[in-house]
Amino acid sequence: MMKGTHCRLLALLIGAGAGLMSPSSVFSQESVVVRAKLVQGDLPTDPTAAAWNTLPVTEFPLSPQVHWQKRIQQVTVKSVKVRAVHNNKQIAFLLEYADPTQDPADAAALEFMVGDKKAHFAHGQPMGQVEGGPVNIWYWRNDTPGAADMTAKGFGTLKKEAQQDVQAKAVWKPEKTKINYKVRKIALRKDAKGEPMKDAKTGDPIVDEETSVVEEEVTGVWRIVFVRALTTTDAQDAQFQTGTFPNIAFAVWDGKKLESGDFKESGSQKAVSSWWYFNAEPPMDYSVYLYGLVAVVLAAGVEFVIIRKVKKGQPA
């Protein structure tokens, strides 16, 4: 490993190459924000509505949940594509992800911080040195119509709110789609002749491990739409002002039933993301053009004065 460090610095010195050795995400998309466009009229509440196709999409990778003790190391859903749209009254999110099986216990959720206090993305669990706030979770499950509007502040505190404000609608289609994800690859180190190499001291075979990216074709896509008013009267809800950057996180469960009778993923065993951003496009404020125009005029004025000065007192 020390060699890697040396190489790295050597690369620095010759000014090239080091970047190739740094880890990077499988997902090359650049955005970290779910951008909700502002539209006039009704929002597309149907997951298959054509209107969704015109909206910008942001893809977020998911990882197995690691905070609860009953964690798993592999999850079915590797990433989720998100679109959003609002009409200044309501907001709609579309989640889209590959899941090869349609199961009654398939589920997905959005999570937001509530109020001014920062909340931990794992159900707003308490933080050591920072006083955190609660989170608002919008939960959809295939065998339950609609969505659950939930609140949590710490593990084991998740509960349905008294006032339910979120609607959801989902559709599964057997579409073909390609997914990329990282896997741990284990290989025996071989010498030039192809013989497995052995550790000089212990005599054990030397095992190389690395993370590699694999591509897979999956048949089956879930599309889920969540709809809620931008602001509600419920103090337990996240409230959205246009133009701001609230945090958003995602979770997905593959509810496939295993032969043992357990679900493949349920409860704390799920695919999650940590916090990203969400932004509801603010209505156009035309005074911005005015400011721009004033700046043009001012700049032209300053330019005029400078040139006059330059013309008058041409420096030697």
Binding site: L9, A18, E30, V32
Partner: peptide, 18 residues
């Protein structure tokens, strides 16, 4: 910005972080 950080793979630049 977060987007730049994501492209860099964190807020450490692999080359200039040194």
């Amino acid at each position: 910005s977060l987007e730049e950080a994501r492209k860099m793979g964190g807020t450490h630049h692999p080359l200039l972080g040194v």
